[in-house]
Amino acid sequence: MIEYLTGILLIIGSFFCLVAALGVIRLPDSLTRMHAATKAGSLGAGLLVIAHAVFYQELGISLRAVSIIAILLFTAPVAAHLIARTSYRSGEAISDRTWIDELKGNGGWPG
């Protein structure tokens, strides 16, 4: 029973990781690529770590798994925020599907 649950979690998690990489390939500009990379990537990795905790079920390993999830969930948005801000301020091309931009003219060097 545990083996089936672990296997299903493994496949779902790595599928989300694959979708994240596919999004980085396919989406039009770097801000939308960030959407795919941050969320789908950390969700996929988190599911894999949960699969690990389900498989072993020991207290020490579960606490280590919780700490990995905490590290991922704390660092991913910080890195995403920094990359997005740098990318926006350095004037990289934004996809022409973007139909409203309230930040334009509001953000300036240096931060």
């Binding site: 979708v19 939308t32 795919a36 309230e102």
Partner: peptide, 22 residues
């Protein structure tokens, strides 16, 4: 809401309408 991002990524063509709001 991860499923919407997933849908936009795996289907051909884009359905996203991005924008920046304050």
């Amino acid at each position: 809401s991860n499923l919407r991002v997933l849908w936009d990524v795996i289907t051909p063509g884009h359905i996203s309408r991005p924008g920046i709001i304050g």
